[in-house]
């Protein structure tokens, strides 16, 4: 690894390690939460944010694919972003369920926010199924790109609109209905730090995943060589 990239990687390690320490020892507990459960917020919110970002990054590369030079690199980048968005989305759902178990007494409550994120995950899970279902590479890339562009309209609906237009037990979003952030400053610092760290981590892993996809496409599986 080049020295600058290695330095950036180690800075990210320090950044996220400090965020974890801050989440448990620096940020105070939120009022109205049972025990230490509010600390999950420092992981849950950045995970949900990163999932949203990943789906938008996929939409960006898909638009570039459809209206640009139809580059295979854009197609690979979109697919990699959606895979990562699903990972972060699942982690956000699981951390949310852990919090719900403590606060509401059950892991799953069909709360609008829980339900809407699961619908978003199903939507993007179908993207991967679509890719697997089409044999022809160019047709697959074109259909997948169109589907991911549709996701640009669907994602904000599931992440931001549904939870705000329905009654929900979920705590008020970080940016509340008045468009303001009502949070204790130290909690906000840790939350923003986590969001920045997770975003940087996403872009690093996304870069790796896109390159791995390229290597896989260029190097056929051993059984394909045998055939």
């Amino acid at each position: 690894m080049e020295p600058v990239k290695a330095l950036l990687a180690w800075l990210l390690w320090i950044w996220l390690a400090l965020t974890i320490v801050g989440a448990f020892f620096y940020a105070p507990l939120a009022a109205g939460f049972i025990g230490q459960s509010s600390r999950i917020l420092f992981f849950h919110v950045p995970m949900a944010w990163t999932a949203f970002l990943a789906f938008y990054v996929a939409g960006f590369y898909s638009l570039r694919y459809l209206f640009g030079r139809r580059s295979a690199r854009d197609d690979r980048a979109a697919a990699a972003a959606i895979e990562l968005g699903l990972v972060f989305g699942i982690l956000a759902t699981v951390t949310g369920a852990i919090w719900a178990r403590i606060m509401w007494g059950a892991y799953w409550n069909w709360d609008p926010r829980q339900t809407s994120i699961v619908l978003a995950l199903i939507f993007y899970g179908a993207y991967l199924a679509l890719r697997d279902a089409v044999e022809d590479g160019e047709k697959r890339a074109r259909l997948a790109a169109a589907y991911a562009v549709l996701g640009l309209a669907v994602t904000p609906f599931f992440f931001f609109i549904v939870p705000r237009i329905t009654y929900s037990l979920h705590p008020e979003p970080v940016i509340n209905a008045q468009g303001k952030i009502a949070m204790e400053p130290r909690m906000l610092q840790v939350l923003l730090s986590g969001t920045v760290g997770f975003t940087a981590l996403f872009f690093w892993v996304h870069n790796l995943q896109t390159r791995i996809r390229r290597l896989r496409e260029e190097r056929p599986e051993p059984r394909e060589i045998e055939a």
Partner: peptide, 24 residues
């Protein structure tokens, strides 16, 4: 997922009234 598992174990114990790390 392992970290999430660690939080789950801590949280579940807390919710059940035991001295869990994320509970009381």
């Amino acid at each position: 997922a392992a970290a999430v598992g660690a939080m789950a174990a801590a949280g579940a114990a807390g919710a059940a009234g035991a001295p869990g790390a994320l509970g009381p």
